[in-house]
């Protein structure tokens, strides 16, 4: 890289912001197309070829709408919440290694940074829900907290397991350790921990819950809570929450790709790393959409029981098992 460091960071910042915007727009398209196909209907078709311009039209529509602050709401916090929900996701994307050298900032505690900034998301949705001064929004905010706190624990246990196996928090270093064919990926490192695929499944479930995606979309249960914490948001305020949701999905899938699926490592040794990274990333993102339109929303008790009674014990067991394996072999 010949650019001076500040210019390089600025370029990456612009790139990441463009990526988040376009990504959100076109994931909405994927979501709607996917929903349509899973329900045996065509999905959006009118605007452009196969509805490809639909997201642009939606974005313009959202941008032209008035942002209404309801009377009685806490106006400052109400306006602040969408910003606070989007900013940490942007921050997390800055350290995701999209390729061997395609990373805005390599930091040796990258994994920790992801979870530190990921935890702000809860706070932001809660501020938004509270500031709306709306019953549905407050119920939704309370649900978000108990859900995210419950699923943070198995997720961090899984991450500790992965930390012990890899021995580093540097994301690029973790990817470099998984060089070679696909059986070198952490997902298939059965020698380090025979339950590695189980660990991956736990991580995936927790990622769905942390990003408030169906079947765990308690924050935005349309049929019972109108639109949950986002009920009072109009126009681009709502749009920013959506962008943040999709950005968080991408961050979550990127972490899964880095930790388990070998990041930018190519399984067959052709094509540049960024291609493979995006392929794995979007395969995971597609599976998230798939899950949403396949499984119905769980009940809230079922959700908490799943975390506290099933996921946390299994995650603890894999943690102990992998530490025993590390000690013995």
């Amino acid at each position: 890289m010949s650019l001076p460091e500040p210019f390089r960071l600025l370029a990456y910042l612009l790139g990441i912001m463009a990526f988040v915007g376009l990504n959100a727009a076109y994931l909405v398209w994927v979501e709607r197309k996917g929903a349509g196909r899973f329900q045996r209907r065509p999905g959006p078709t009118e605007v452009g070829y196969a509805g490809l311009l639909q997201p642009i039209a939606d974005a313009v529509k959202l941008l032209t709408k008035q942002v209404i602050v309801p009377p009685g709401a806490d106006a400052t916090l109400f306006r602040l919440a969408p910003v606070v929900v989007l900013a940490p996701a942007l921050m997390c994307l800055a350290i995701i290694p999209f390729g061997p050298h395609l990373v805005a900032r390599e930091i040796n505690v990258g994994l920790l940074l992801l979870f530190a900034f990921g935890s702000i998301n809860v706070m932001a949705i809660m501020i938004g829900g509270w500031a709306s001064r709306n019953k549905y929004a407050i119920i939704s905010a309370a649900r978000v907290v108990s859900q995210d706190v419950a699923y943070e624990i198995p997720m961090l246990l899984v991450v500790i397991t992965m930390l012990m196996v890899t021995g580093t928090m540097d994301l690029n270093q973790i990817v470099r350790q998984q060089a070679g064919a696909f059986w070198n990926w952490n997902l298939f490192k059965l020698a380090a921990n025979p339950l590695m695929p189980v660990t991956f499944v736990i991580f995936y479930i927790c990622m769905l819950a942390e990003t408030n995606r169906a079947p765990f979309d308690m924050a935005e249960a349309e049929s019972e809570l109108v639109a949950g914490a986002f009920t009072e948001y109009a126009g681009m305020g709502f749009g920013v929450f959506f962008m943040a949701e999709y950005a968080n999905i991408v961050v979550g899938c990127a972490v899964a790709t880095v930790l388990f699926l070998g990041g930018w490592q190519s399984p067959i040794g052709i094509l540049p790393g960024a291609f493979w990274f995006l392929l794995k990333l979007y395969a995971l993102v597609f599976s998230v959409v798939w899950v949403r339109w396949t499984f119905p929303r769980t009940q809230f008790y079922g959700l908490l029981n799943l975390s506290w009674k099933i996921l946390i014990p299994i995650a603890l067991f894999t943690l102990i098992l992998s530490s025993v394996m590390l000690k013995l072999f």
Binding site: L113, V122, M123, S146
Partner: peptide, 25 residues
Amino acid sequence: SPFLALMEILIYVGAVCVTIVFAIM
């Protein structure tokens, strides 16, 4: 100490403040 900085965010913003807000709710 970037580690301490991130721990500050993870624990104080992500856990302590969330717990306080939950209590307020």
